[in-house]
Nucleic acid binder design. Sequence first.
DNA 1: CATGGCCTGGCT
DNA 2: AGCCAGGCCATG
Length: 286
Amino acid sequence: MPELPEVETIRRSLAPHVLEARVEDASFLRDDIIEGAERGRVTAGSARRFTEGAVITGLDRMGKYLLMELDGSRGWAVHFGMSGSLVSHPEESVPARHTHVILGLDGGAQLHYVCPRRFGRWVMCGEDLRAAVSGRVGVDALDPSLDSTTLRELLAGRGAPIKARLLQQKLVAGLGNIYVDEALFRARIHPERRAVSLTEDEWGNLLESVRTVLLEAIGHRGTTFSSYRDGDGRTGSNQHRLAVYGRRGGRCPRCSETVGRIEVRGRGTHFCPSCQQWNGGEDPGH
DNA sequence: CATGGCCTGGCT
DNA sequence: AGCCAGGCCATG
């Protein structure tokens, strides 16, 4: 479940191993996880030719995409789906089950991309990597230029619950199920509130909460439930700091009420029924 | 705007 | 044995 904090942690941990390294050999072990920027099919052979011999000149992040820049402007946009990882091994090593990509770097290190559930993708971006990813994601949730007015303009306007709007990567990029629940808890907003019903103060709180929750998670090197690892293969520790996510039946850290779990648009949703009420908004059909 | 399908590991 | 988790896309 790599969301923004996990991808950022992968980026930071991987950067010293890969920046300015040359890819000596690239093995794409199956072609159903690679695609073109325009959603076209890409063969393992063309992926290999695209990658081999190139120098990794940048490692960036947009939303949940890791951007591996090759030779200056083209490159790969790597998505981790739910269960993906990209780990640097100091030397050639036996690939684990579900390893789909192996990059051998000069100096001997190897990058292994493992993705058991295969929800992840390597998107081949032949020209401008950042421009290609811009077509897939909206403003990054940690973009300092994002203000609460812009947040409202992006997310309000429809009848959908605020949680559903926050999960749409083309609006604001980087939040998944864990951090949406955590941010709404911190902002004391009920996940089913219609986005359009939020007050000005609530938009401000929400933006502050999104930033705080994400930055704290990065500080703890991400949330590990089962498969998530950073670029060095290490687990994160933010799972111990979560207030509501995965804590159904536990105590709310703010008021000691029992954490509840409901379903919002098909997603498991954790919240505090006491701290997160319908305050200020109309009741949208409950 | 809402729902189903893709996938496998882990839990009930 | 069976279901659930969930990001994202395709379809109703």
